[in-house]
Nucleic acid binder design. Structure first.
Lengths: 324, 324
DNA sequence: CTGAAAGCGCTTACAG
DNA sequence: CTGAAAGCGCTTACAG
């Protein structure tokens, strides 16, 4: 069942079938058009996207490299990418790689001839080289900045973290701990500056993975301190969820015994106990901007006028874990 | 940069380039092979998967239709599908469709020429017709059974639910409510039979969506009853998470005031407060079986010997929300 | 308005 | 062991 079958059924050439199915680039006489459409219908013909892709040099597919999808935050991100891509007529090829090499994921997606890729993983220069080599447009998403040559759309982690910690200070906390990755990243700097700005000494820092398990272990360490903080800033929702469990098990009331604020603000954070006050990321905007960027919707703007890094603002979602 | 460039750089025909890159179907002299590989390396050549797919009639892509990926359970399922597919050299095209028509998703995936699709959504006869029309192999996953013509790999929901409710009864509960979809499905039957088997009257049933919000609302309804149940079986992790929040807000202790058991057992269920006792689904096995089925790994078995429906056993994960 | 034909980048049966 | 050539199913410049 190919275009040729439809053509012969309708008594036309395959060119005319294309013209009517694609609404161009040539006009087709209304009567002819009707015959073609009728043939398509009765034969149940569906165009072969692979052949079309080969001819056009475009698959209509975008790739997404993401650590994992079974995580409230990245799951939401993936959902949003799928929705936004579908709205633009693009299909989504998902490449999960939590432990693996980003470079490998990039190469595999490129081999599949995706029209572009969104990379939601930290990238190094090596990965950027893979992108350049592949010749496929790519934009880094969910990261404040990346290696040279790859534009990024991220979130103002510094500002979001700083605002969150200031909020904790407004609640009267003087000792605010940090659960982070220990890499001195933007969130850690925001936390530190909020404290310094209020004339407060930096609280304890625990370096852990961005997982529930990490948050759980971090709280245990914090509670073992001679002088535990009265509030803690967790660098991800997942960490905060783990932190809450450790706090409950240790019978430390939240927020009374320890206040908690999380970074991410995925939908899941509204259903913990107590509900998490969180720094919400502008997910939809971030994805839309990244896709705009990827598809070069701003080709009328000179590339040099575009900042290589775009930072979006966060929003503080006040719920109960902070004391509100 | 195509196969022809490599061929001329190596001084051979394009056929030989194919033979060496694909390790067949013809042998290549070692020296020639080396020259080709060298040319590939220096030119940075990558085969065009689209052209290959057109020629071979196989894209090496599988499609997945799933309601949403930002849900601990379906996120885990999607992760597993990606991993298992990648292990077989297949890429994953994800088609999210929470509100939309399953039929539409099937048609779009088929148009992309996927080699097969996994459908993790309830299907009706209309959807089955779309599958048949598309001519693409499909298997229904995560559902006990589907319309005729579509094989399915699911989980023994009846048995899992029954076992969970029996466990609640062992804890001494006599009034066990059900949060379900109100469709009298397998889980509801398992719940009812466990109660009946113990000579207990059926507890109250609340019909709600399989979401956190649904579970939240359901508990509010249960608590408003003149004689609320002392335990409740939630048909999904998400519902259980919402139920816990409603219980905490209503200051009903768990499991003391109300015990909770959930169906699904995703990783998130271990980090709620209290941790959820849950009926865990054999995710990896389910996905592997579904892919085996999809790829016809059992072609040596007569199709008629294969059950159209395959049911996998669940496991009860005992944590704290049940009273253990 | 319609059609014959080339070509996208591969793979492989056929011939040497 | 190697190569010339056909063909997968489309799209579109070119000609009529």
């Amino acid at each position: 069942m190919t275009r040729a079958d439809v053509a012969s059924a309708a008594g036309v050439s395959t060119a005319v079938v294309s013209y009517t199915l694609n609404n161009g680039p040539k006009n087709v006489a209304p009567a002819t058009r009707e015959r073609v459409l009728e043939a398509v219908r009765t034969l149940g013909y569906r165009p072969n996207a692979t052949a079309r892709a080969l001819r056009l040099g475009s698959t209509g597919q975008v790739g997404l490299v993401v650590a994992t999808v079974s995580n409230p935050y990245f799951g939401q991100l993936t959902d949003q990418v799928e929705r936004s891509a579908a709205a633009r007529g693009l299909a989504l090829l998902v490449r999960t790689n939590s432990g693996g090499l980003v470079r490998e994921a990039i190469e595999q997606l490129a081999a599949r001839q995706v029209d572009g890729m969104l990379i939601a993983r930290p990238m190094d220069a090596n990965d950027a080289a893979a992108v350049a080599e592949s010749g496929v447009p790519a934009v880094l998403i969910n990261e404040a900045s990346g290696p040279a040559g790859v534009p990024s759309v991220g979130v103002d982690r510094y500002g979001g973290a700083r605002r969150a910690v200031e909020h904790l200070i407004e609640h009267g906390h003087h000792r605010v701990g940090l659960i982070g990755a220990g890499d001195g990243g933007h969130r850690q700097r925001g936390w530190a500056d909020a404290l310094a700005g209020a004339g407060l000494p930096p609280g304890p820092v625990v370096a852990e993975t961005y997982s529930r398990e990490g948050g759980y272990r971090a709280v245990l360490q914090l509670l073992a301190l001679p002088d535990p903080p009265t509030a803690v800033f967790a660098s991800s929702d997942e960490q905060a969820v783990g932190a809450l469990l450790a706090l409950h098990e240790s019978e430390v009331p939240v927020p009374g015994g320890m206040a908690v604020i999380a970074f991410d603000g995925s939908a899941a954070s509204a259903f913990t106990w107590p509900p998490l006050t969180a720094v919400a990321q502008p997910m939809e905007m971030m994805v839309e901007r990244a896709l705009d960027r990827l598809l070069g919707l701003e080709q009328n703007v000179l590339p040099t006028e575009l900042p290589s890094t775009e930072l979006l603002p966060t929003e503080l979602l006040r719920r109960r874990s902070c004391g509100c």
